[in-house]
Design a protein around this nucleic acid. Structure first.
Lengths: 360, 360
DNA sequence: AGTATCTTTGTGCGCGTACACAACTCCGTT
DNA sequence: AACGGAGTTGTGTACGCGCACAAAGATACT
């Protein structure tokens, strides 16, 4: 009786099943041309020995090129989307020895037809996998259906669409994060119980569903714990210029001097933080927002924003691409729903968070 | 002129430098037996083409076995150390195709000679790398000196020792985390300004330096922002039984009814949380502690502990082993000081954090 | 010139897997 | 008995690299 090596190889399986490595290979990859008898014998031994192929030898031998496409809204540097993109780029680098490439495509987040045409472009590239954020829920389903027909796996980042069947999803549980935001904001309240929700939209059209969900979670918390607390709303249109915004905020604070707490559910909290600094109001006002844009981080450091909630966009992008590799190249099972932690950042714990985000 | 393939290989370098692959290999590994002329020519081309070896082919070919040792204090399941160990185990699995093994050794955290003898055992195994937590600062230096003489790289987790030169360190900036803890605790204060620091030691001997550093950071914050706030201290010995502990706490709360805030700097906050539940005091008292032990998490869920500060022990362990692999096997540069984020957990954001910690 | 020694360079095999292709078996047909 | 074809099975080469060993060139000494 030969003893088995520490790490089982295909030829060990072959020897035990009394077939050649070619047959084992065919069984492993589910290819035809194997008799029922051999297939069963090989499968039995594979299971018995709990065989796992050496993924590095495997990748080396297959030598196939994998092309992934990543579709994100058009964005400026240091935005939330930018961080996701950085994560995807890093993953591309990490897995470069597997011959993967990640092609970036961008669309106008306020234009359905733009998403559509970028989606077409993506399909034309005949990718092995796609990663994108389903910010456009209606058009998304047309796109995912096409992907499913072509058997191209796709990964959602940031948000998800219930009707679709992605390989995986990476993002925050937005409602719970809004709930948590409410908790943290009211911790700052003391007796001053009145809150303003700053909205930042384009003609009333919200940037994403996530923002909406956050607000629902927030209002749920408020209804549960601070029913008497008055919640004001203030809409700022992204197309307004600075003077108009300042005027709007001045008017609001003149007519509502009792409001000492503010919250935003998108990543534009710096608009309000910078206003507070300009009017020198930050001492008496507490502001909570989302995402670690540079301008938001500056506000946090200066004290014009008290808390930021983060959601590890870098890792969303990194893990998204990583998951495609794991599933397609290494043929591993992957977890489908992956909620990112709801991270609370203040001036006091910010630095070490940023530090941990940028490295791999 | 031949065009270059997308991915540069050794033989491409060899062809361009007009030498054989053997010579390129010698240059890459800094081995002797190469003329100055050849070496320079090869190095020039390596740099020009920015050559990076295919690490998977490399690992496959070398086929060397790497043995790592991980030394941690003796601990029960679901403790902080346990999570580090889990991370190390996971890394062992992730990198199993590189033929690595991680041997776990445990020592009594209150016994210097135990650390010493375990250290000897580790050296006897002639490991390729060591990961441990320098909880015993004095004996650590003897051990690290020996490691350095034998040219065995080592990684610190949890805490570090200034005089040593580890390959890398993964842990929290303890002072800053104490500072942050102060900030968050005082957020819960409102007008009731009196705090008790619960200590949990063994005959006055603190478990680790990290705890001490946290308390320093905390007191620094208090001195900066709440100078008038009275800070009481209460020492509980780990060897006391439950009745004695309850008696001690009863006495304290009887004589100091005005104290409504408590903090601990080790991971034993559940001792106090469970007391609060037992005495039904949790509504009127806010408690902050460290680390996500099961019992602590239960307290958080029940509301007997308000906040926990976490430091991703799983990733400390995972990254520690990963770093050894990267440096030794893949010959990559690694970052030496890696501060873990200072994570704030409450009942509202706990679940998604736990979710993200357990998976890889 | 011949030989020994040292330095430098080139070659070949193996790591574990994937895949193309060759080879063999079995069975029915001519 | 010879042949063809489908269904199976085995074999050889390649992937990119590391390393042992062979080969060739250089130098010094007899």
């Amino acid at each position: 009786m030969d003893k088995l090596p520490e790490r089982i190889r295909i030829k060990d399986i072959a020897r035990l099943a009394e077939v050649s490595v070619g047959t084992v290979d065919r069984v492993l990859h589910g290819r035809p041309g194997v008799s029922k008898n051999s297939r069963e014998r090989v499968e039995k031994i594979l299971k018995e020995l709990d065989y796992h192929p050496n993924m590095y030898a495997s990748a080396l031998a297959s030598n196939k090129k994998y092309n992934f496409v990543c579709m994100l809204p058009l964005h400026s540097t240091r935005s939330y989307w930018h961080d996701i993109e950085q994560g995807a780029r890093k993953a591309e680098l990490s897995y470069s020895d597997f011959h993967i490439s990640v092609e970036m495509l961008h669309y106008d987040p306020y234009d359905f037809s733009s998403f559509e045409s970028v989606g077409k472009k993506a399909l034309d590239m005949n990718p092995d996998g796609v990663m994108f954020s389903p910010t456009m829920s209606r058009t998304t389903l047309v796109f995912t259906k096409e992907l499913e027909e072509r058997k191209i796996p796709y990964v959602f980042v940031d948000s998800q669409v219930k009707e679709a069947s992605p390989l995986a999803f990476f993002g925050q549980q937005a409602m719970q994060s809004g709930y948590f935001a409410g908790r943290m904001l009211m911790l700052l309240a003391h007796e001053k119980e009145a809150v303003v929700v700053f909205r930042h939209s384009r003609g009333g059209q919200m940037g994403s569903n996530q923002q909406h969900e956050r607000e629902i979670g927030f209002r749920y918390y408020m209804n549960e714990h601070h029913k008497t607390c008055k919640i004001w709303e203030l809409d700022v249109d992204v197309r307004q210029n600075q003077e108009e915004t300042i005027q709007l905020l001045d008017d609001f604070f003149t007519s509502h001097p009792e409001v000492k707490l503010g919250i935003t559910f998108n990543s534009q909290v710096h608009v309000f933080g910078e206003y507070l600094e300009y009017r020198n109001k930050s001492k008496a006002f507490n502001l909570l927002g989302y995402d670690l844009l540079d301008r938001n981080v500056n506000c946090l450091r200066k004290g014009t924003v008290t808390f930021l909630i983060a959601q590890q966009p870098f890792f969303q992008g990194y893990n998204g691409i990583q998951t495609l590799c794991k599933s397609l190249i290494l043929r591993k099972e992957v977890k489908q729903v992956n909620y990112m932690p709801i991270d609370l950042l203040s001036a006091e714990n910010l630095d070490y968070y940023l530090d941990s985000q940028e490295s791999e």
